[in-house]
Amino acid sequence: MGANTLKRRVVHTVQRLAVNPIGRNLPVTMIETTGRKSGQARRTAVGGRLIDNQFWLVSEHGEHSDYVKNIKANPAVRVRLHGTWRTGTAHLLPDDDPVARLGGLPTLNSAVVRLMGSDLLTIRIDLD
């Protein structure tokens, strides 16, 4: 097993068992996707920045992340910003430079994404 695979598994487990359950009950930014298998709403704590009418974020594990797999199956999402849910359409941007993009996003979250990430991927959500 490669270092990135092990890193991704450890981080995913911590996020699934601790970060996401706690985040669902705190006023943090969340993305809600539709489960590609279950069809159920799936919520994940994310960090990013609203710029005009677009929400920008970088996925730590790119196409290995469950929420990214869900976006690929159905790009209609909701984002909770400052306690308010907004609908939008997510776009995966593999040609964008995710490290450069992190420079314009919140500093603490960007540092965690750089540290914990294994396969960074920029995502833009066009909000309705």
Score class of each variant (00 low, 15 high):
Leu93Ser: 08
Thr33Ser: 11
Gly2Asn: 15
Ile31Gly: 07
Thr33Phe: 06
Val46Glu: 03
Gly35Trp: 12
Ser59Asn: 04
Val99Gln: 10
Ile31Val: 15
Gln40Lys: 14
Leu121Thr: 15
Leu50Arg: 12
Met30Val: 04
His64Phe: 09
Asp52Ser: 15
Glu63Asp: 06
Gly103Val: 00
Leu102Cys: 04
Val68Tyr: 02
Asn53Phe: 08
Val10Asp: 01
Gly2Met: 13
Met30Asp: 01
Ala73Asp: 03
Lys7His: 04
Asp126Phe: 14
Arg49Val: 12
Glu63Ala: 02
Thr29Ile: 01
Thr44Cys: 04
Glu32Thr: 10
Ala76Leu: 08
His82Gln: 13
Asn20Ile: 02
Asn74Thr: 10
Arg36Met: 12
Trp85Lys: 11
Ile22Lys: 00
Met116Val: 12
Gly48Val: 06
Arg78Asn: 03
Ser110Asn: 00
Leu127Phe: 13
Arg9Val: 14
Arg16Cys: 00
Ile51His: 07
Lys72Leu: 13
Thr34Glu: 09
Leu57Ala: 08
Gly47Tyr: 00
Val11Ser: 05
Val19Ile: 12
Ala73Leu: 02
Thr89Phe: 12
Ala76Phe: 03
Leu92Cys: 11
Leu121Cys: 11
Ser118His: 07
Gly35Phe: 12
Asn74Tyr: 05
His82Ser: 13
Arg49Met: 11
Leu127Pro: 14
Asn70His: 09
Asn74Gln: 09
Lys7Phe: 03
Asn109Glu: 05
Ile51Leu: 07
Ala90Met: 10
Ala73Cys: 01
Thr122Leu: 10
Lys37Ile: 11
Thr34Gln: 11
Val112Gly: 09
Ile51Pro: 00
Arg42Ile: 14
Met116Thr: 13
Leu57Cys: 10
His82Thr: 12
Ala73Gly: 01
Ser118Asp: 14
Glu63Pro: 00
Pro27Arg: 03
Gly88His: 11
Leu115Phe: 11
Ser38Tyr: 01
Asp96Glu: 15
